[in-house]
Design a protein around this nucleic acid. Structure first.
Lengths: 173, 173
DNA sequence: TACATTTGTAAGTGATTACTCACTATTAAA
DNA sequence: TTTAATAGTGAGTAATCACTTACAAATGTA
C-alpha cells in the first residue's frame, strides 16, 4: 500500500461519509488526496472499486468488534457485551460507521449479514436464561444497538453512561 | 395541484427513496412521471425544490403521528403510544420514511427536531412514574423506535407482534 | 548496467448532469 | 370573444461526470 494509495482511501472515506458516495466526484477525491485523478483508477479500477476497498476495511473492523462477543460463553456476558458494542465505537471510527450506515439505505446497500452470527448467539443466550421469547429479545437488542449507534453517530448525546446503565438494568446486568 | 404535478412528486418519491436523491436525475424523474423534464423546474424551481416539496409532506405525516402522543396525559399511555409509533407505519408510507431515514446521513440532512417535544413529554412521564433517570429512559425509548423503524423499513421482520410484546413488558405495559 | 514492472501524471474522451429558453396548449376571468 | 395567466413541451446549454490513454518517473531485479 503506497502513501498515495492511503491518502486516496483516507480522502475518499472522509468525503463519502460527509457528502455521500454519489455526490462525491472522483475529481474531488483526487484533489483532497493530492494526487492525479487517473491514479484512483490505476489503483482501484473504478469508483465502485474505491468504495469496495473502504468497505472492506469497515467489514474487518465490524468483524473484530463481534469476535469478542462470539467467544463468550456466559449468557449474561454475551448480552452485556452486545449491548456495549455501540458504546465502544471510537471517535476515529466515526467516519467509517457513518458511511456504513448511510449506505444501508442505498438499493445496493452493503450487507449486515455479519451480524447474523451474533443474533444467533444472543437468541441462545436468552433461551438459556429462560426468557419467554428469545428470538424477539434478540431482535430487540439489535434494534437498540442500531438505534444507539445512530444516535451516537448523528447527535453524540452527553449522557451515554446513564443510557448504558438504564439499558443494563433492564436485563439485570 | 395538477395531475402532472402529483405524478412528478410520486415518481420523485419512489426514485429518491429507492435509488437515492443524488443518484436520481431529473431526466429520469420526468420519464417515470411521464412529463417533460422542463415541467419539473416550472413547478418546483430546481431539484432541491422538488425534494423540499416531498419532505414537506413527510414532515406533515410525522407531525400527525406525534399529535396523538402529545395529547395524552396518563404517563403509561404516553410511553405505550410512543413505543407503538414504528409499528403503526403503514406500508404506503414506507417510501417516504425510507427517504427520510436515508437523508438523515447526508450533511444537509433534514432535522428531526419535531421529535424534541415528544422527548420532553416522555421524560416527564418517566419522572412521574418514579424512574431513576428519566432523561436516559427517554433517550432509550427513542433509540428503540429509531432502531425498530430502521429494522421494519429495511428487513420487515416477521415477529413484529412479539417484539412489541417484549418491549412493552419491560415497562410493565 | 540493462531491462521490466509498477507508480504516477496531464490531457483528453463521450455521456450525463441540472437547468434554460422559446414556444404552444389550456384554462379562466373580463 | 378577447385577454391574461398558467400549464406544458422539446430542443437546447455549459458544466461536470466517470473513465481512458499516451507517456514519464520511479523502482525493482538480473
Amino acid at each position: 500500500m503506497t502513501e498515495k494509495q492511503e491518502s486516496i482511501l483516507q480522502a475518499a472515506l472522509k468525503l463519502f461519509a460527509t457528502e455521500g458516495y454519489a455526490s462525491t466526484s472522483t475529481n474531488k477525491v483526487a484533489k483532497v488526496a493530492g494526487v492525479s485523478e487517473g491514479l484512483i483508477f490505476r489503483h482501484f479500477k473504478n469508483k465502485e472499486g474505491l468504495l469496495n476497498a473502504i468497505m472492506g476495511q469497515s467489514a474487518a473492523a465490524a468483524k473484530a468488534m463481534m469476535a469478542d462477543v462470539i467467544m463468550t460463553n456466559e449468557p449474561k456476558e454475551i448480552i452485556r457485551k452486545t449491548l456495549e458494542i455501540p458504546f465502544n465505537i471510537g471517535k476515529d471510527e466515526y467516519e467509517m460507521w457513518r458511511l456504513t450506515y448511510a449506505l444501508k439505505w442505498q438499493t445496493n446497500g452493503y450487507d449486515s449479514s455479519g451480524f447474523d452470527n451474533v443474533k444467533l448467539i444472543l437468541r441462545d443466550a436468552f433461551d438459556k436464561l429462560g426468557y419467554d421469547d428469545p428470538a424477539a429479545e434478540a431482535e430487540l437488542i439489535f434494534m437498540f444497538i442500531d438505534g444507539a449507534a445512530t444516535s451516537f453517530l448523528l447527535h453524540e448525546p452527553t449522557n451515554k453512561g446513564d443510557i448504558l446503565s438504564s439499558i443494563k438494568s433492564k436485563y439485570n446486568l
